[in-house]
């Protein structure tokens, strides 16, 4: 039962410590609740958990996902048509915990549905459902005080972003307010598979690493192959793979599970 395990910020920190001991990065797949159907999305996440991934970014669908590319736009649109609400997403997390999924789960959602739900209530209910933290792509730190305070009080991780355009001042600010980890966007752009990682990635990561102390860095956007995963595993504390898994899932749960398993294998 989950009561035996720590949850929240401590669980996120423990995930990075374990990955560090294994001399690799933590692999955190993104998957949205409600795609291809609500029931299948829960099955897929449960199947991914079996492959030995380290954590999850659980997507809450939004009608206007302006940081997402075509694959996640289409999948989350389908999820909305399937009746996926914030409440349904929290219930999915509860079901996954009941089925024994132990990895940290970060709730990833755009701000408006969370405001409609109620900021404080959302953090409380996410915690009660068994989630460990929160990622809001359209909420920079300046606008995130209420979430940050509530998460701090409830022991939940509150993640903020850095991008290749971030100035030294932004890097310092985000390092100060983020808890759990910093989500480092690999490129200027939206989510989606890319054949190549950006050429200036290493220099960008070095710039960030020098300024954030011990705060774990999780790289996302564009990572799509086991080879790329292996490459970034040596450079950061964690990485997120989303669009390519969602695309694989359109061919069935097994395809998504197999891809995740190959990525897990590649970084061992």
């Amino acid at each position: 039962m989950q009561q035996a395990h720590v949850r929240g910020l401590s669980a996120v920190q423990a995930m990075f410590e374990a990955a560090k001991r294994a001399e690799r990065a933590a692999f955190m797949p993104y998957f949205p609740i409600g795609y291809p159907t609500i029931a299948e999305s829960i099955e897929i996440i449960a199947a991914l958990a079996q492959t030995g991934v380290d954590g999850f970014e659980i997507g809450i669908p939004f009608s206007d996902p302006l940081a997402d590319g075509p694959v996640i736009q289409a999948a989350t649109q389908t999820a909305l048509e399937n009746g996926t609400t914030v409440r349904v997403c929290l219930d999915a997390v509860r079901q996954l915990r009941e089925r024994g999924v132990q990895q940290p789960m970060m709730m990833m959602g755009y701000l408006n549905p969370l405001i409609a739900y109620g900021v404080e209530q959302f953090v409380l209910d996410a915690k009660a459902a068994g989630a460990d933290g929160l990622i809001v792509p359209d909420m920079p730190p300046e606008e995130g005080a209420e979430f940050a305070e509530t998460c701090a009080r409830e022991g939940m991780a509150m993640v903020f972003f850095l991008a290749p355009t971030s100035s030294p001042e932004r890097i310092a600010l985000v390092a100060q307010v983020a808890t759990g980890f910093i989500y480092v966007v690999s490129l200027t752009g939206v989510t989606g598979a890319r054949s190549e990682l950006p050429p200036d990635l290493t220099a960008f990561l070095e710039r960030v690493k020098g300024a954030v102390g011990n705060m774990p860095l999780v790289l996302g956007f564009g990572i799509s192959t086991p080879e790329q995963a292996k490459m970034v595993s040596a450079q950061v504390d964690g990485f997120i793979v989303g669009s390519v898994l969602v695309k694989a899932a359109s061919n069935g749960a097994a395809a998504a599970r197999d891809l995740a398993a190959r990525i897990v294998e590649a970084i061992r």
Binding site: L66, P137, P140, E143, F160, L162, A163, T165, R170, V185
Partner: peptide
């Protein structure tokens, strides 16, 4: 200075765009 008109306004955009807005 933060772009607020009373309770309204602000800069709710992905971090990538914050430096561009600055």
């Amino acid at each position: 200075a933060r772009g607020y008109y009373g309770d309204f306004g602000g800069r709710y955009v992905p971090e990538t765009l914050i430096p561009a807005l600055d």
